[in-house]
């Protein structure tokens, strides 16, 4: 029975290929409701029960009242007079959130990337050296293309920017091709699930 319902709902979703229709809209709303309910339950369980209720009432960690109160301050959104208080928990989430981002971002996305690009060629084969040089040229020319403060009037400057465009097109094409294949693999997987369900019914 469940298999039949899932199969019908999958057909409703696929019916969108013929245009927007009531069957798709119904399934779409069903997915929204189930996802929202599941997301709410998951966060309620992970955040409220495990991080607030159990520490407060079973483990006697009374300090968790502070984030609890801070969270409750969100409800001041509904008051016209006191709604500025709802900005306090938001400020906490925002301030600590962006603070948590800065260090790891600089470490992983800048320092380690520079480290991986500026390598020592000693002991490498000719092929590896050429590959690293290509990576370096692609990196520098792409960055040069996006340095809008520089004027690109002279032929040499235009050439560097054009090499950057060439590498970007190569990368975009590869990424697009990769994405197409990923989506088609997912479609094949869905078609497989679809036929598995049909065979399990009959």
């Amino acid at each position: 029975m469940v298999e039949i319902i899932t199969l019908i709902l999958m057909l409703f979703v696929l019916s969108f290929l013929m245009g927007d229709n009531p069957f798709f809209k119904f399934t779409e709303r069903l997915i929204v409701g189930i996802s929202a309910g599941y997301g709410f339950l998951k966060l309620f369980d992970d955040g409220f029960i495990k991080k607030f209720w159990i520490p407060l009432f079973q483990e006697g960690q009374y300090w968790v009242i502070i984030p609890g109160l801070l969270g409750m301050m969100f409800f001041f959104t509904f008051s016209k007079r006191w709604n500025f208080l709802a900005k306090y928990p938001l400020a906490f989430l925002l301030g600590t959130g962006v603070g948590l981002e800065i260090g790891p971002r600089i470490e992983t996305s800048i320092l380690r990337q520079i480290n991986a690009t500026a390598v020592n060629f000693s002991g490498m084969s000719a092929g590896q050296v050429i590959n690293y040089i290509i990576i370096l040229i692609a990196l520098l020319t792409t960055m040069y293309y996006f340095l809008f403060v520089l004027r690109r009037d002279r032929p040499a400057e235009k050439l560097i920017a054009n090499i950057g465009i060439f590498f970007m097109m190569l990368g975009f094409g590869a990424s697009f091709g990769y994405t197409i294949m990923g989506r088609i693999s997912l479609l094949i997987e869905v078609i497989n699930i679809f036929f598995e369900k049909i065979t399990s019914i009959f």
Binding site: L43, D46, F48, M72, F92
Partner: peptide
């Protein structure tokens, strides 16, 4: 704290 505040 982030988890607790996010629930509210």
């Amino acid at each position: 704290w982030h988890m607790v505040i996010a629930v509210f």
